[in-house]
Design a protein around this nucleic acid. Structure first.
Length: 572
RNA sequence: GCCACUUUAGCUCAGUAGGUAGAGCACAUCCUUGGUAAGGAUGAGGUCGGCGGUUCGAUUCCGCUAGGUGGCUCCA
């Protein structure tokens, strides 16, 4: 007897939901309904517009079906037999046609309901547990935007009601970490409805931004990069040469001046190559690593925007490595080392996923070169002890790429770091970058596009959720808050503030008329790492009373002792 | 961009079977000078996303439009 896995239970729940929807509504066409890491979904096509108001009815029907505790019976059938069983179900019949000749076609029957399915499933419906429907969403048939949009219902399962309650409570907790909520609560940024996808950074948010950027800058300099900056607005002629005008125009903001068209840059790469081309280059200049915190604008479809994670104006910790083909592997390996180093500083090296995207059908260049490039990427990962999955055919048309993905508070994956190999842009057909080789002849270099954090906007969004707003000392917008007991301690509070500020810390004084308890509460809610309480007693003893976000009340100490503690924490 | 849902004060949300609205927090003023998670009082703040329609009258019903949310496609 095989073990009943969560995947089987979820998948079986999807079947029962499909059955329930057909029992509750008329003219239901079913497509497919797999299990996911979280729960399951099923795609339907029916005249009724599904809404969350329909959930109780459907859930009740599912509960009824589960309670029947009917067995899931597997049967291998012939193609014709299966087609007969699926009569009237056009999507299912199309799916049936997809199954290659010679492969087993199996069906699962539960009570009077039969479905074509590979399985596996639970043995009896009661093994599924409790089912709750979560949301309805649109979904293109076969994931193709040219196809009809089906109605998808997402659901989750639990072994019993207690586990379901715990699951829902965890979801509520995750929502509290949502960067959009914390961004407002902690006064980090705001988004203006009239200017979708553009971030207004408030002082506290911008402090994090600049601190992160400085951190990255130090890493880049140490790793042999040179920082550059290129124009935000570049002419149509350049974009035509780069290929963006033909392939990326829909995503570009275009503007006009004196009858010439310009575009706000969606990427920094042409700018980097312009710098490379500004004088004759030697093979001795390679690899040339040009970093740029360039502000890019992409006119993303409105439906794809999401807080500060997916925006229309953003800055990548971008860099372009211009090198020879022989240098690719070492440069990729070097990048992986840098990425690992940075991610480990945030604890992201644990839950990160790496994907290698290979040659797509629509590509330029010959297959041998592609395979060589893919190998170089894979070898660099292995050399760094990184495990990865392959995304077949998901590479860019100009070259394969590595993607490094991090998960947000609501379990959505976001691509942050990436390195992409590009044979195209430096080529004669595009921007025609050249260097003089040891043989005295001209050669085209290859280019690596790469980013460690991805966009600063997205990375900060993930950081907000990762730390639940409680940033480590070095990143915290306000590192220390001084809480004078009353006006009588105001002068002493200012003296301490000045001393901390002189030592380079971001420090504020809460001089409001509130009582100490209220001040502590405010500083705690705002997640300030250190609170310093000062009153007449401290002043007389030339001490401060320290409260840490992590360890609570630390009692009284000398300012020097506190400074030493801060310095030690900044280093770690 | 596509499908569904949604939009009331700075924030989180009530509410009106159609008769132009409330709470908590935040904010302002005053009182309180208080030693480790919310002291008290008073007050200000909204043409209920925008436009149009139905109606004697629309925040409420209908249509369009914009933003947001959840997905899909796309993507840093």
């Amino acid at each position: 007897m095989s073990e009943v896995t969560d995947q089987m239970r979820r998948h079986s729940a999807a079947h029962l939901m499909a059955r329930a929807v057909q029992n509750v509504f008329e003219n239901v066409q079913v497509d497919i309904g797999p299990a996911t890491d979280e729960g399951f979904y099923y795609d339907f096509d029916l005249p009724h517009r599904l809404s969350p108001e329909d959930f109780p009815k459907i859930e009740a029907e599912i509960a009824r079906l589960i309670a029947l505790d009917e067995p899931f019976v597997r049967k291998v059938v012939s193609r014709d037999e299966c087609a007969r069983m699926l009569a009237g179900q056009t999507y299912k019949l199309e799916r049936l046609a997809d199954i290659p000749e010679g492969e087993d076609i199996s069906t699962y029957t539960v009570g009077d309901y039969v479905e074509m399915c590979r399985g596996p499933h639970v043995e009896h419906s009661k093994q599924i547990g409790v089912v709750k429907l979560r949301r309805v969403a649109g979904s293109y048939y076969r994931g193709d935007e040219h196809n009809k949009m089906l109605q998808r219902i997402y659901g989750i399962i639990a072994r019993d009601q207690a586990e379901m309650d715990a699951l829902l409570a965890r979801e509520e907790e995750a929502k509290k970490r949502d960067h959009r909520r914390l961004g407002t609560e902690l006064d980090l940024f705001h988004l203006d409805p009239e200017d979708p996808g553009q971030v207004f950074w408030h002082p506290r948010g911008w402090s994090i931004y600049v601190t992160l950027q400085d951190y990255m800058r130090r890493k880049l300099v140490k790793d042999g990069y040179q920082e550059v900056n290129t124009p935000a607005l570049m002419p149509r002629s350049l974009w035509e040469r780069s290929g963006h005008w033909a392939h990326y125009q829909q995503n570009m903001f275009i503007t006009e001046s004196e009858k010439r068209l310009f575009a706000v840059k969606p990427m920094n790469c042409p700018g980097a190559l312009e710098i490379f081309k500004s004088r004759t280059r030697s093979y001795k200049d390679l690899p040339l690593r040009l970093a740029e915190f360039g502000h890019c604008a992409r006119n993303e479809p409105s439906g794809t925007l999401h807080g500060i994670m997916r925006v229309r104006g953003f800055v990548q910790d971008d860099a372009h490595i211009i090198c020879t083909e022989e240098q690719i592997e070492e440069e990729v390996a070097k990048f992986c080392r840098l990425l690992k180093d940075v991610y480990s500083d945030f604890g992201f090296d644990q839950n990160m996923k790496v994907r290698l995207s290979t040659m797509p059908e629509d590509h330029v260049g010959d297959e041998a070169t592609w395979r060589k490039a893919e190998d170089a990427l894979a070898k660099a990962l292995v050399a760094n002890g990184m495990t990865y999955a392959i995304q077949e055919g998901e590479g860019a048309f100009y070259g394969p790429k590595l993607e490094f993905k991090i998960t947000d508070a609501l379990d959505r994956e976001w691509q942050c770091g990436t390195i992409q190999l590009d044979y195209q842009l430096p080529s004669a057909e595009r921007l025609n970058a050249e260097y003089i080789g040891a043989d005295g002849k001209k050669h085209h270099p290859v280019m690596l596009h790469r980013a460690v954090l991805g966009s600063l906007e997205r990375f900060i969004g993930i950081l907000i959720e990762h730390y639940a707003g409680a940033f480590p000392l070095w990143l915290a917008p306000e590192q220390v808050r001084i809480l004078p007991i009353s006006d009588k301690a105001a002068a002493y509070a200012q003296k301490i503030r000045a001393a901390l500020a002189a030592a380079g810390y971001r420090v504020e004084v809460d001089s409001s008329a509130e009582k100490l308890g209220a001040k502590i509460r405010a500083a705690t809610v705002e997640k300030v790492p250190y609170q310093i309480v000062v009153g007449p007693r401290d002043e007389a003893a030339e001490q401060i009373s320290v409260r840490s976000r992590a360890d609570g009340d630390l009692g009284a100490m000398k300012l020097d002792a506190f400074l030493a503690r801060l310095a030690a924490e900044m280093k770690s």
